[in-house]
Amino acid sequence: MMATRRRPSRWSGGRRFALLTVAPATIILIVLSVFPLLYSLRLSFTDQQLLSLVPPRFVGLANYAQLLQDNLFWSSLGVAAAFALSVVTVQLGVGLALALALYRLPRYQQFIATLLLIPSILSSSVASFQWRSLFDYSSGPLNYFLGLLHLPLLSWTADPRLALPSLLLVDFWQWTPFVTLLLLAGLHALPASVFEAARVDGSSSWQILRYQTLPLLRRVIAITVILRLIGAFKVFDIIYVLTAGGPGSATESLAFYNYVQGFRYFSVGYSAAMSYVSVIIVIVLARVILRYMERPVGRPAADVPVAEAAV
């Protein structure tokens, strides 16, 4: 496969064509993303305040140093990390279970999958508003159901211990179907022969899952992890609509705190420094996971073509 895919020598004559076709997209992306980023970088070395009468000064790395001492920054980083980690593990776990279940039900599978996908194709502000009304203490359906079961009613987003889990629930609702579908597609790309052979061996279902299915799905899983990790790291809309970062700063994630500093307090220099830290975190994360994914599967060579088939 590698051989048919990449034969640059034959394509040398296409250089002009390649340049012309890749240039418009690249130029647009550079103008609209890279230069704003460079501009932010410059801002991050100043103490610029949009609404201060004090003229801005160049302060070097002072903003970055201040970040290290900023309790709210650390707590927001903690919230972001806790959120991202829970999102990835829970959604991957439940998504995998659902994908395996759906895989067993070939009839109407595509229809059910599309139906379940509706939460993922709604805008996150729509999702947040629906959940705001679902979470309502006295008139929300969730507490109504708890009441039917004679369980104590919950304050959901207003309870300091429950606020972050409540947001996780919303994100879980919105994105687990998407994760399920990715994994389901990954399952379908696996060759049936592997499992049939294993079954003849007398392996148990769990063994097949653990030693056959999961390793083969590694690539899909890695991509899912990247997508959800980064989605979770960027999460903003549901916080904005559901908790505004509260109670206290219990749900103030890095993206939200960055927004508060930049767009509510207009400390644009400080906020730019924080943006940089988050961009770096995201890029490093993506690189690490991509690299892990690119590594050949650590199993006998016979498995490699199978892994490729999943691609």
Binding site: T26, L32, Y39, A255, F263, Y276, V282, A286
Partner: peptide
């Protein structure tokens, strides 16, 4: 590099370029 650059733009939090934008 160009591929990774294009991919990483997908991951950038919009708030990071909000003000210059």
């Amino acid at each position: 590099n160009l591929s990774f650059f294009i991919l990483s733009l997908l991951f950038m939090p919009p708030v990071a370029i909000g003000i210059p934008m």
